[in-house]
Amino acid sequence: MTLKLQLIKELRVPIDAGCICPDTFAGKSLNEIAELQIWEGNRKRLLNSLFELKEDSQETPDETNIHLTGNLSRVQRIGAGMKGGEITVQGDVGMHLGEKMLGGTIMVEGNAGSWTGSAMKGGTIIVKKNAGDYIGGAYRGSTKGMQGGTIIIHGDAGTEVGCYMRNGLIKIQGNVAQFVGIRMRNGTIVVQGSAAERAGAFMTGGKIIICNNVTSILPSFSIDSIKSKAKAEGEAIKGPFYLFIGDLADHGNGKLYVSKNKNEYLKSFEEFL
């Protein structure tokens, strides 16, 4: 089944649309789906009061696919907990996209909000433009960030990418703000662009690869070696890279790869090799 949802209302207050999820739609008739409940601020609404729903009879895959169109930047929790199927979004999308997802694919043509893929365990999220803060992060107070799956951001991402990450892969093709890979325990983060300060703060394991400039290295990291390439989930990324180990303030053994050619100011560390 393939469903097309077109946003028909200009939104002011946040929408909690956790029901927009292939697993919730699966096995329901169009009418049943239209009457699923969402929250518009503190008002309970039916899905069809905000969206025009159409079933695309041309496409009849086994899985449930959902195509969303409109400015969904205030619509939150789309695809939360999804196990399979596909969601595509033509436009921007709000916070908590694919939160706790287990499988399937989400593809966003526009920008995504903060907490995209937080605590996810499987599946793939692709964002064609920029994403907000805490990509692949954890809920407040929890130490369970992303535990599996893949997030690919074609543009830039905000602060704390991969906070408390335990496994999986995050790829940012643009730049990242401060604290990339903070508190990560395992998994891999690749930043094609540059990273602001404090990459890998408090990290105890895992791998961060920064292919361009990094503003500074924390004093609690120690240089280990110079590597000609870095590996990210089987893919080799050409270096050379300085490899730092940290965060030693937390007895960490995380690996921080930083492009050698783009960060000449780090040459002073070579004397410790």
């Binding site: 404090r198 703060a201 924390l218 004093p219 609690s220 240089i223 030693l248 303030a249 007895h251």
Partner: peptide, 22 residues
């Protein structure tokens, strides 16, 4: 401040810094 705290944490654990100043 963040860098200073992390450096102090390392020193409190008898670690060594690879820089001259923080």
């Amino acid at each position: 401040d963040f860098e200073l705290f992390q450096a102090l944490r390392l020193l409190v654990r008898d670690g060594e810094l690879e820089v001259n100043q923080v």
